[in-house]
Design a protein around this nucleic acid. Structure first.
Lengths: 214, 214, 214, 214
DNA sequence: CATGAATGAGAATTCATTCAT
DNA sequence: TATGAATGAATTCTCATTCAT
């Protein structure tokens, strides 16, 4: 068995190498400008080798897509140590925005690009379960907001609407930046505006008690 | 003279046919997966014909991009008849979301796709003015919020931050839908959620007096 | 008849306009970079109009080709006033080189480009006579050299060889320059070298008496 | 190791196949009328394959161009065994003409076609050295003539002018033939005329003593 | 496991040319 | 006579992918 495991391990390492390299290149050159050849060159293997580890280019992209959600979910989990649900919610917002700003290509893949979604839709026909990964994160947010509501810390509203709203707000902020729609602001003021915007939402959204607390 | 006008009209119609077709395809397949050939096939002309009406692919994209902003701006202007700045702001939000939901391809081009921005950045180097079209709309929003603040109807904050926040919120809502990230909601509930989300923002963002008014 | 002649005249003028424009463009942009469209734009007619006056692009090129030979022949004729055949020969050399330097695109068309020759060969199959235009000039040179030989001013040799040699020498000089093979000389020394080269040939080729005379 | 060498060999053979084929086509149709597709078809590979061996069309052209100069230079070197500089010069002329007549495509590329020169000019901006290949051959001729002059075997004259003149003469001869401007001579007399023309130059150019020697 | 070699499909673009009007 | 509109046939080049070795 030892030998089998070793093999398996090596295979996983190679996959990781390919994925990491692909991601690095995506970040550098943008998703649509990276070719299998680029990736192969960077890791100093032949293009054909890539196909031993991934079915095709979509497979790479989709795997990264899933890994992105894995990462994001883990980050979300870190907020669980916070007792107060509103504070936790806020922390979630921060975590979400940070993730997006630090991994814009992952974020793009997960929440903006068309390709992966198409892939998922195709898959859904065959294997219904797969998409859990994505909805899990939304569910997490939803639960958090539910707790807030139950604790009277959040305006009563349709839970789906509320969760979607909070998500949309955060998504709006980061996606405008990732897709470069903030040319009206000086480059160096952007990060500041992002942070302030997050505060602004929480500041105006909740009652005075909360505001002071924050 | 009549003959000249007729010709001109036909030319404009052809341009429009190309633009509309391109737009439809962009929506279906994504900007980077639409080729001049596709467009040509769809309208049942040869690829070369397209080049009689547009300099190149960028020209098509950029024209649509500009037209989109033109349309949006006109819609924004319609809110000017509303006296109360907060009500006007809200109407602007509605108008923005409606525009996005009814013209998702335009919206995508204007606020999500990467291509056009690259073009604009290149242009900016040569002719600084052009981009007015886009920032004009933002400026309009900004002014409206300023009025709200001055009237004490809006939380005091950095104007840029506030305007960006409001924009980001609306953008978040529509862009998640346009890019198909709301698969967790049943298809037929989506429009409802969008509308509610808009209410939700205005409902929580402003003080009681405002809320009642709305 | 008057009306017919007028028409014919206008037709000729249009042809001339097209030819002149084509030549001007050839000179500016190089032969292979000029399109029918360019020519049409320059004369402010539509491309289709060109086809009313010339069968196709080759027809234009070939016509220019013939006109070039016409011009050159006329220039050669001007040397006829010179009595002394050797002096006349030298003058011919000067005239030839001047023509080439002042009309490099004509020269290129006449003595370097492949296209026109192919055309002529095709024609020759049908109408044997046409090529007179070109050989006429060679014949002129040949006769001149013959006279020189008969006057004892030129080394006895096979007449064809002698004529070809003189021609080749002149052609070598100008074609190396026209096709830009003199990059080893400073730009501003080139014309000087050309002139000197011509002198050099005549200076070394003939006996002392001649040299002094020149 | 054998396997590696074999592979390398095969690669070189493929490159050679492409180069030879390209050359043949260039000769048949002229540089600008040969496309990557033509070459690919001729060797019965797909166009894409060509790009595995050459970066682009220019790469092919420029490689051939350089190889031509390499060959010519080697041939020139063979004359070094001849002591007498004038005899050596004459031999150089023969070698030059032979090279041209036996490799007209190479000669065309090296001394007539426009394309390669453009390439070289672009390169010169970046890397000044490269062009040595071409000027090396001219320098060789120049040196030889210098020796002749120093030995009193050649008319005193500006060295550049003299070298250019000799070159131009040889170039004139071969380029008129290569570009098919000798239709006035019967096909089978042409080679004879070329050879005679070379003799003619040397015969008339130098004084009696030399003439006899030759 | 790894790859060199090959390719089919397709990209944007250009141009000479035609033809109905 | 003049032309606007249209196009077929090319062009160079790129890329994901396959397959024999």
């Amino acid at each position: 068995m030892g030998i089998k495991e070793r093999k398996e391990l090596e295979k996983q390492e190679m996959r990781k190498l390919i994925l990491d390299t692909a991601m690095k290149l995506f970040l550098e050159k943008g998703l649509e400008n990276v070719t299998i050849r680029h990736i192969a060159e960077k890791i100093e293997y032949s293009p054909a080798t890539i196909y031993l580890y991934f079915k095709d280019k979509d497979d790479i992209i989709y795997t990264l897509h899933r890994e992105g959600f894995e990462q994001l979910y883990k980050l979300q989990q870190t907020t669980l140590s916070i007792r107060d649900p509103l504070e936790r919610l806020r922390k979630q917002g921060e975590v979400y925005v940070s993730f997006a700003m630090e991994n814009p290509e992952y974020y793009d893949l997960m929440f903006i690009m068309r390709g992966p979604v198409r892939k998922i839709k195709e898959m859904k026909i065959k294997e219904m379960k797969e998409w859990d990964i994505g909805s899990r994160s939304f569910e997490f947010l939803r639960q958090n907001i539910k707790e807030c509501m139950e604790a009277g810390l959040f305006p009563e509203a349709d839970l789906d609407v509320a969760a979607f709203s909070v998500w949309a707000y955060a998504h709006g902020i980061v996606s405008l930046i990732i897709r470069d729609r903030c040319m009206m602001f000086p480059e160096d003021k952007i990060r500041h505006i992002v942070d302030e915007a997050l505060d602004f939402m929480f500041g105006t959204m909740f009652d005075d008690k909360v505001k002071i607390k924050l």
